[in-house]
Structure formats: structure tokens, C-alpha cells
Write a protein that binds this DNA or RNA. Structure first.
Length: 739
DNA sequence: TATGCCGCATTTTTT
DNA sequence: ATGCGGCATA
């Protein structure tokens, strides 16, 4: 860790320049592994210690909460308690915090809730139904995607793009407006609103903007290549007065174009902020020469980038291993075998990661990992706070905090089932509209209304009583974990799950236990714990199961891998249709293909020492078998850095990859050995025979004397130098072949 | 109103 | 293959 005084001595000249250039606009183009996090951290430390800037005048915007936390932890080591005064957060979290203070100026209430994608979709569905639109012609998901686009790109509702969409465009405008009204009635903001309303605030309330400009005199934005248009405008507003804006990014690692990230933001920075200083960090400290050379060769095929040359003084390292497999099951088995081998060579399990393009690929890998009892952890996929049971319980809490939250109400009013079905709910909604009440407030009235059958009235009364009881407990200041438990108890949710007695319901109950834990963790960690604060955390943070250093192999998608590094990296499914993904290919758009290339680039550059690329000749996808060809990106890698191996048995491979087996008659089944890399004999696939020299972690060096058995159960008799013969199972013996 | 079956879609997802 | 949502039935 940097000492307080000599922190500059640990930086190379470029990094030092980036740290010292505190005034004015700065663009740091930071290649993969070039130490950009270190630069950002030292920059903050330097501002505070070297330039006497008060930490509270520094804003650091990151893209993930994980990055924000990591940054703060590292700064704390140098600045101690002062680190807490620096504002380090994501765009969304930053805006949420600002709006908590200021949103009343825009006519919203400060106890707004944040709707996630699921809530949003439910609300859109309501709107679509109300408008009698056909869900087949106009899928709610389409509206959601388009509404996100309208908000992210600040599209004017009179824009010609909408007109050109014809009736769909008209429906979109219609749904959009109704959706916004409903959000407001529910006192809710979606993710885009967090940014958008902060922007409106800055545009409409100059004094408020001025206050934040004064506060954030030094602004740093990480992962600038992945900012969208609204985020770009927010940055511009905040930086306008002092112009001390430093953005860090790498257009080669921009992989969220599909989510509205605008690569132009980083490409145009120097024209947006004239006189900007541009500093390129091109020395890579992470990976071997071969990895860097290969990744650079790959990415040089992209046109949309600013030329830069990544280099490293690290050793050349091993060749990149290219492994061909029959199908995804063999791929998984081989990946696992590789892990065992790497482990025997001294790599800890936590040093090894497998990346894949789509989450669905993880299952086969998991099967193999479990069979061999290798401990693993999966990142991404279903998130804790997105689980149904967790969301249900949270919805009750949301309703306490904000009774206007109509989506939360919809979620829980009949969960667990209490006799308030679709018809009753419908009637309740009508009553609410007629009486100008929110649905929640209409419930006590409905309980008394003769228009409802006795059964429904009783159900309303029960529900109303439950909510009142919970409300009383909350108002009396009950601790959060207890409140969560009370909700689980009084609503009957826990009983409902407990009576199911399935493995599934057990798991759900465990998740709810975990939610109680999360609540108590929050309560002890937060400065001023509140229900609202907890709910905000659950909406904006979803990494309850986070990184553990517990010697587990890591599995994740290529997207999730960004920002991480591992000594040994395996990319699985390096095939046409997967990397690049079929959907990107279907777009038939150079930009889409370039993004796929960047994604692969990101994956490759995570590797410090060893990189393995696996592909399968056929792959089961949604129940059907498909042929596949190696990714075109493999051909873009310098062949001298590659070492390929192939299986001996090869299924016949039709020319048209990406087709189902059954779509080919016998004529399609041609042997295809002409293309692809040469067949090298594999060192990975160790051929055991008498005389092979090996090293064992505890027995030391030895020579193989005898080989028994075959395939999975090869046993070896090894004579060790230290004396003694041992009979070992080849696969599990952690033997390393030596020369 | 609750339940069970069928049909449909299923990239990536830091927020 | 699998899960979710919609619709028909008990």
C-alpha cells in the first residue's frame, strides 16, 4: 500500500502525469490492465493530501457498486476516516441520493420508491391492458425497451423517428405518457428516471445545480466508454463551473452499447471539453506478452477506436491454448480436467475463472464441476433481491414506506392467496378511481362496501388488519430484522412456504433467512438506518452474494468479467453464434460485430498468466443439437501465439454451421478436416507412459514405472527419488510432468 | 378463486 | 430443456 508521502514513486511517468494533472479536463485512455484504478485512487489521495482539497469536494463516479466499494476500501488505507467524506458512488446511486434531498422541487415526494425492471414491466402491462392494446402485437417488453430508449436518449415525443414508426410509434407515445403518470401516482421512479430527473433538476433549478457544482469541484468518472447520453449531460452540468473533470475509459472495452452506452462519449471527449489533456496509459502490468500481443491483434480489427498500442514488460508466457471439443459436455469435462491440472501445478482454485457468453452455458459446467467436487461460485445470473420470495416480502415493506406504491400492492394483495383474485382486484381498482383514492386507501372502504361479496369483504378486512399491524410495529421503531420476520409471520408467507415442504420451498425459506440477515447487516453498517434506506439498497445493489476469496473457481459471463483479473482464464464456447453471438450477427451491422470483438477482448485481457480458449464442434441449445464452427475471432489472433489441440474422434461436420442436425440430410455430413489449425499433440492431454518424469507436491520428483487401466481410471506406479513406489490415480494425483 | 396444463420464448444486464 | 404466463377447467 502507498505510504502517505511516497505515493508518487509507485507510478510510471504516464500514471504520474495522470495523477498530477488535477486541474482542467483530462481524458485518461486506459488500456486493459494499465493500472487505471490505481491512478484514480492516487489521484484522489493526491487531491486530498497533495493539493489540500477537502475530500467532500471530490466526486468519483463508478459503474458498479462493487467498483465503488473497492475504491473506497483502498483509499481508506491511505486517508483513513477522510475517505468516507469522498463521494464515491454509481451514477444511479448518486442521483438517488441527490433526489432524496431535492426531488420535492420537481413536484415529487421525497420518499419515492425505485422500480426495477420487473416492477416496470408489471406497470407497463397494466397500462397496455387498460389501453386495450393487443399484447401479441405490442409486447410489454417492447414498450419497456422503447421507453428506456426514449429516456436514455432524451427523444422528444414529437421526434420524426417516432412518426416513422407508424401506429407503433403512436402507441408508444400513448403508453409512455400513461406509464409516466402511473409512476408518478405510485410515487415511483424507474432507473432511467433517477438520471433523468436529476438532469431536469439541474436544468430547471440553477441554484441547486450551483450548490452541487460547488460541492463537486473535482469530478472523476470511471468506465466513461460505457456512459449513456443522459449520464454524459449530467457530467457536463456538474463540471461546467470548475471544469475539473477527469474521465477514465477504454473504448476497446465498451460492451454495453445495447444498453444505451454511447461509445462516442469517450471518442468525442476532446471536442466536448476543448483543451482537454489526453493521457494514454498503454503499459500493461497484468498479462504476459503473448496475451497482450494476441488481444491487441484481435482488437486492431475494430474501426471505431483511437489507436493505441498496449505493451508489457512481462515475460512472454505460454502460448494461448486452443482446445477443440466434440460437444459442450466434453468441453465442460475438459475444462474441469484442466482445472485439476492447473491446481496440481500450483494454481489455487480462486486463481481460475471460466467465462462464457450466455448464462445458459453455466449449467453443463456446473454439472462437471460437481461431479469432480471442485468448489465453484457463479457470478451474475439470478440476483438475490430479484428472487420472487424476496421481492414479495420487500413489497410488503415497500407498502409500509410508501402506500402509494401500486405495483407493490398488486404483488402482495393476494400473496399468499387470501381470496382476492383478479375479478375482485378489478372491482377494487374501479372503486378507487371512482372515489379518487389510491388503491391502497380504497381497501378499508371496499371492506365496508355492499358492492363486494362477503367473502371479498372479509379478505379485505384481513389484509387491512395485517397492514395496520405491520404499520404499528414499524412506527413504534421496531428493528429492521424483526420487522422483516414479522412480515413473514403475519402475512402467512412463511407458513405458506413451510407447508409446501419441497426442496424448492426450503430454498426459498433459506433466502428469506438471508433477507433477515441482510436487514441486520444493513442496520449495523448504515449511518442512519431506515426502512427507506434499506429498500433503496435492495433496489440499487444486488450483490448480496459477492466475491469470496475462499478458494473457489469462478464462473461468469464475459460481461460480468469486466474489471476483474485472474491468473488463469478459460473462455468456453469460442464459437460462431456464441462469440460473436448469433443475435449480433443477425443485426448484420459492423458496430454489433465490433462490440462482440470487444467483449472477447475484455475476456482475453482478464488473464494474467494463462489463457485457454475452448470451443465445441456441436452444442445442445434449447434441447436441440447444433453444429458449430470455431469463432472467426480465433483467426484474428497471431497463430504463433496459439497452440491448438483437437480431439481424435470427430463427428462429421456439415459446412453450414449453426444449423440443427436434423436440417441436414446425409449429403450434408461431409468430413471436414481441411480447415482450422494444425493438429498439435497436446501437452494438456497427458499421455502417460513408462519413463515420464513427474513431480508430486509432497512426494517430490519421480518416474512413472507402470501404467494401468484406461480413460478415466488410469493408475500409475511412480518411483520417487525420495524413495518408495506409490500407486496413484492419474487424474487426482496432482502430478506435474517435468522434463 | 385456485390449479393445472399448454404454448412460447429464451444475449449480454454494472443500475 | 425449462420456466413463465395465459387460459381453461374443477
Amino acid at each position: 500500500m502507498p505510504g502517505k508521502d511516497n505515493y508518487l514513486s509507485e507510478l510510471n511517468p504516464k500514471q504520474k502525469e495522470a495523477v498530477l494533472q488535477t486541474e482542467g479536463p483530462v481524458l485518461i485512455v486506459a488500456g486493459a490492465g494499465s493500472g487505471k484504478t490505481r491512478v484514480l485512487i492516487y489521484r484522489m489521495i493526491h487531491l486530498a493530501l497533495g493539493r489540500g482539497v477537502h475530500p467532500s469536494n471530490i466526486l468519483g463516479v463508478t459503474f458498479t457498486n462493487r467498483a465503488a466499494e473497492e475504491m473506497r476500501t483502498r483509499i481508506r488505507k491511505s486517508l483513513g476516516g477522510l475517505a468516507e467524506r469522498i463521494w464515491i458512488a454509481t451514477f444511479h446511486s448518486t442521483c438517488a441520493q441527490i433526489l432524496r434531498q431535492e426531488i420535492h422541487q420537481l413536484g415529487y415526494s421525497r420518499n419515492f420508491v425505485i422500480y426495477d425492471e420487473d416492477d416496470t414491466l408489471r406497470l407497463i402491462k397494466q397500462v397496455v391492458r387498460d389501453k386495450d392494446l393487443d399484447e401479441k402485437t405490442y409486447p410489454p417488453k417492447w414498450f419497456r425497451a422503447r421507453i428506456e430508449w426514449l429516456k436514455r436518449d432524451l427523444v422528444d415525443l414529437s421526434d420524426s423517428q417516432l412518426k416513422e414508426m407508424g401506429p407503433a410509434g403512436k402507441a408508444l407515445v400513448d403508453v409512455y405518457q400513461a406509464y409516466q403518470e402511473r409512476l408518478k401516482l405510485s410515487n415511483a421512479l424507474d432507473f432511467e428516471d433517477l438520471l433523468l430527473l436529476a438532469l431536469h433538476l439541474f436544468e430547471q433549478k440553477p441554484q441547486t445545480l450551483a450548490r452541487y457544482q460547488e460541492r463537486f469541484r473535482y469530478i472523476m468518472v470511471d468506465e466513461y466508454q460505457d456512459t449513456n447520453y443522459v449520464q454524459y449531460l449530467l457530467v457536463r452540468h456538474l463540471a461546467k463551473k470548475y471544469r475539473n473533470i477527469c474521465v477514465v475509459g477504454d473504448e476497446d472495452q465498451s460492451i454495453y452499447r445495447w444498453r444505451g452506452a454511447n461509445i462516442e462519449n469517450i471518442l468525442n471527449f476532446t471536442s466536448d471539453f476543448p483543451n482537454a489533456k489526453v493521457i494514454k496509459l498503454e503499459e500493461n502490468y497484468r498479462s504476459t506478452k503473448r496475451i497482450i500481443e494476441s488481444a491487441s491483434a484481435l482488437i486492431s480489427h475494430n474501426k471505431k477506436r483511437v489507436a493505441k498500442t498496449l505493451w508489457t514488460e512481462n515475460p512472454a508466457g505460454d502460448e494461448i491454448r486452443l482446445v477443440e471439443c466434440e460437444d459442450e459436455r466434453q468441453e465442460a469435462d475438459r475444462v474441469v480436467e484442466l482445472m485439476l491440472r492447473l491446481n496440481s501445478q500450483g494454481f489455487k482454485y480462486k486463481d481460475i475463472a471460466v467465462f462464457y457468453r450466455v448464462n445458459a452455458q453455466s449449467r453443463t459446467l456446473e454439472d462437471s464441476l460437481r461431479r469432480r467436487e471442485i468448489p465453484y461460485q457463479i457470478f451474475g445470473g439470478l440476483k438475490f433481491y430479484d428472487r420472487k420470495e424476496v421481492k414479495d416480502i420487500l413489497a410488503y415493506l415497500r407498502l409500509l414506506s410508501n402506500p402509494d406504491d401500486s405495483i407493490a400492492l398488486e404483488r402482495v394483495i393476494n400473496t399468499p392467496p387470501r381470496g382476492i383474485g383478479a375479478a375482485t382486484t378489478e372491482q377494487l381498482n374501479r372503486l378507487a378511481i371512482a372515489k379518487h383514492l389510491t388503491v391502497f386507501k380504497a381497501i378499508p372502504a371496499a371492506a365496508k362496501s355492499p358492492e363486494f361479496p362477503d367473502r371479498a369483504r372479509k379478505a379485505f378486512r384481513e389484509f387491512s388488519d395485517i397492514m395496520q399491524e405491520l404499520n404499528k410495529a414499524w412506527k413504534s421503531g421496531m428493528a429492521l430484522p424483526e420487522l422483516v420476520e414479522l412480515v413473514m409471520d403475519k402475512t402467512g408467507y412463511e407458513d405458506m412456504l413451510a407447508s409446501e415442504e419441497t426442496a424448492e420451498s426450503e430454498a426459498r425459506l433459506e433466502n428469506l433467512e438471508e433477507l433477515v440477515n441482510a436487514a441486520s447487516e444493513y442496520e449495523s453498517a448504515a449511518q442512519e438506518p431506515s426502512l427507506q434506506g434499506f429498500l433503496e439498497k435492495t433496489a440499487l445493489f444486488n450483490d448480496i452474494d459477492r466475491f469470496s476469496d475462499q478458494g473457489l473457481v469462478s464462473l461468469m459471463t464475459l460481461h460480468t468479467a469486466k474489471g476483474l483479473e485472474f491468473p488463469a482464464v478459460i473462455v468456453a464456447g469460442v464459437e460462431e453464434g456464441l462469440i460473436p453471438h448469433i443475435r449480433a450477427l443477425e443485426e448484420n451491422d459492423e458496430d454489433a460485430l465490433e462490440e462482440e470483438r470487444r467483449l472477447f477482448y475484455v475476456g482475453m485481457t482478464r488473464a494474467k498468466q494463462k489463457l485457454f480458449l475452448y470451443y465445441a464442434r456441436s452444442r445442445k441449445l434449447r434441447g436441440a443439437d447444433y453444429w458449430s464452427d470455431p469463432s472467426r475471432f480465433i483467426e484474428e489472433l497471431p497463430q504463433e501465439n496459439l497452440k491448438a489441440e483437437r480431439t481424435k474422434i470427430r463427428k462429421p461436420h456439415p459446412r453450414s454451421a449453426g444449423k440443427k442436425f436434423e436440417e441436414f440430410g446425409p449429403a450434408g455430413f461431409e468430413l471436414d478436416d481441411s480447415e482450422g489449425p494444425e493438429v498439435w499433440d497436446s501437452e494438456l492431454e497427458i499421455t502417460w507412459k513408462k519413463g515420464v518424469k513427474v513431480r508430486h507436491p509432497s512426494f517430490g520428483k519421480g518416474v512413472v514405472e507402470k501404467v494401468e487401466g484406461n480413460e478415466d481410471k488410469i493408475k500409475l506406479v511412480v518411483k520417487f527419488e525420495a524413495g518408495g513406489k506409490k500407486k496413484l490415480v492419474a487424474k487426482f494425483a496432482k502430478l506435474e510432468v517435468i522434463k
